[in-house]
Design a protein around this nucleic acid. Structure first.
Length: 497
RNA sequence: GGGCCAGUAGCUCAGUGGUAGAGCAGGGGACUUUUAAUCCUCGUGUCGAAGGUUCGAUCCCUUCCUGGCUCACCA
């Protein structure tokens, strides 16, 4: 485990330092936990990033830190999410790790949602240990705390009743055995600590035993939360605001930790939620989901951290990935690069040359971004980001595409416009620079007595099928001159007769 | 009702215990060259309200008002 980080490396916001300074001496275990019951989205990512930032802040002050992502894979399937086959009802109550992947592409339901998220964490270059709770249970990590919980059933029950105000069932147990049917829900009758097991009765009155050192059941989640702190020696964990209200899971877990497990309550940070501008809070059931990978498609990991954490996570965040995005990227680049190319310009380039790095380099060089072109690998990435953004998020005014075939819209070009295009087709020579092309386009319009606005509109229409676009000179110059001449000639010729 | 967050220029928001800032919008000017054009120029707004701490508060504390989100397993 690394002790020290290069000062340039991790982005540690000031709030993270503040949080870290409130935590005692190490060693530290920073934990974040998420249930893979559905898509793990950008909001969940915020939790992980909060944890990461605090872990980094601790490391920065020289602490030994273990950073753990606890995936609640043993949790039961609670409801049928949209898009999941209805016959999955038969798996309700089964551990997510033991439910088949609805799309058949992964080993389990849990992995189906977990693996893409793991890939995103890798894409984020995050140094985190991913633990699957069913494996922790199976390997006995939870055995000791489960034993304690079972022995203190009465106290735990009292805390739950007191704090949540709910009346717990007569036969409540902190431990939920997995019955023969695969469902979690047997009724515990007897605890056999020396065998690390319980005797339980299933819904049909059958008795059997469940070994809690081998993952044959799990703790109820409120108890598990407190137990987990102890089992993993957690010292810090962030929570979404929904968990931290009075009578909520952190309330009960705090008291359980102190009074039953005799374990100090880990440091905490409450974070607010992320919304997508114009769409609202993230919600799988409403189809409002932003996946971490979608962010990584349009920006580098550093920018993702910046976007998600830049503002104190205790404050709500309204993500604007459309109109406001270019400015965000420009601000980010201004801080991280010596010669940033305006994002909007990259978008124009990407839409003109696609992902052809050499042509992009050519175009940028013409535009005066000589320095930015040096690092081709970086240019390739940036081009990809701009390209993906243009396809998926860009507002209409940013989007254009050079049409492979003559656009139908050329019908809107009148005779004057066609004469103009004919003239340009004749005059356009190879190897023109952006300014020269701009001059040609403009002066030709003046010579023919065509209003510049109309002339330019004809150019855009012939190439893009719309009336406006990126600055015409550099744009036309960046295209294959032969292609442009043929297109313009076609447009003027076809429609003349 | 509990919790968290917010309330600063028309809009979106930065911000610091010591005479208030940016971007956009808007006004004016320049360029006979379309483009969310570009360049130059212009910002006194009771920093939600009232108290308190302080030599001094927009920033710290208290109370209140308004708005947003959240509250039993959807971060």
């Amino acid at each position: 485990m690394e002790q020290r980080l290069s000062p340039t490396d991790p982005y540690i916001p000031s709030w993270a330092h503040k949080v870290a300074s409130g935590l005692g001496p190490g060693p530290h275990v920073v934990v974040t936990g998420i249930s893979p019951s559905g898509n793990i989205h950008a909001g969940n990512l915020r939790e992980v990033l909060v944890a990461e930032a605090v872990a980094n802040a601790l490391k920065a002050r020289g602490e030994e830190v273990r950073f753990v992502f606890h995936a609640d894979t043993i949790d039961p399937l609670r409801k049928i999410a949209p898009g999941i086959p209805k016959d999955y009802e038969r798996y309700l109550g089964h551990s997510l790790s033991r439910v088949p992947d609805p799309e058949g592409c992964h080993a389990s339901y849990a992995d189906h949602f977990l693996e893409p998220f793991e890939a995103a964490l890798e894409g984020m270059e995050m140094d985190v240990e991913v633990l699957r709770s069913h494996e922790l249970y199976e390997s006995g990590v939870y055995a000791e705390v489960t034993r304690e919980a079972l022995e203190r059933t009465g106290d735990l029950r009292a805390i739950l009743q007191e704090i949540s105000g709910r009346k717990m069932p007569e036969h409540w147990s902190p431990y939920i055995p997995r019955t023969a049917s695969g469902r979690l829900g047997g009724r515990v009758l007897e605890h056999l600590p020396e065998q690390r097991s319980v005797v339980y009765e299933d819904g049909d009155g059958w008795e059997d035993s469940s070994n809690y050192g081998r993952g044959e059941g799990k703790l109820g989640w409120r108890v598990e939360l407190a137990a987990r702190w102890k089992a993993l020696r957690a010292t810090f964990e962030p929570f979404g605001k929904d968990h931290t209200s009075r009578g909520g899971s952190t309330d009960t877990a705090d008291r359980m930790a102190r009074e039953v497990f005799d374990y100090p309550v880990p440091g905490r940070y409450e974070y607010e939620w992320i919304q997508i501008k114009g769409r609202g809070a993230m919600s799988s059931s409403k189809g409002i989901v932003l996946l971490p990978n979608e962010l990584l498609e349009i920006m580098p990991p550093g920018a993702v951290r910046r976007l998600i954490l830049g503002r104190d996570p205790a404050r709500a965040l309204d993500l604007d990935l459309a109109a406001g995005f270019p400015r965000f990227m420009d601000e980010y680049r201004a801080e991280t690069e010596a010669h940033p190319v305006p994002f909007a310009h990259l978008v124009t380039v990407a839409q003109t040359v696609g992902v052809d790095v050499e042509r992009a380099a050519e175009m940028l060089r013409r535009g005066g971004y000589e320095e930015a072109v040096r690092d081709r690998e970086k240019l390739r990435q940036d081009l990809g980001y701009a390209h993906n953004w243009a396809e998926k998020w860009a507002p209409e005014q940013y989007r254009f595409g050079v049409r492979a075939e003559v656009p139908a819209e050329v019908a809107e070009i009148d005779d004057e416009g066609r004469r103009y295009l004919r003239e340009i087709a004749d005059k356009l020579s190879d190897g023109l620079g952006g300014d020269e092309a701009q001059n040609l386009l403009y002066s030709t319009a003046v010579e023919l007595g065509v209003k510049p606005k109309k002339a330019f509109a004809a150019v855009y229409t012939a190439l893009l099928g719309r009336k406006s676009g990126p600055k015409a000179g550099p744009f036309v110059a960046s295209l294959d001159p032969c292609f442009v001449r043929t297109r313009f000639a076609n447009v003027s010729g076809d429609t003349r007769s």
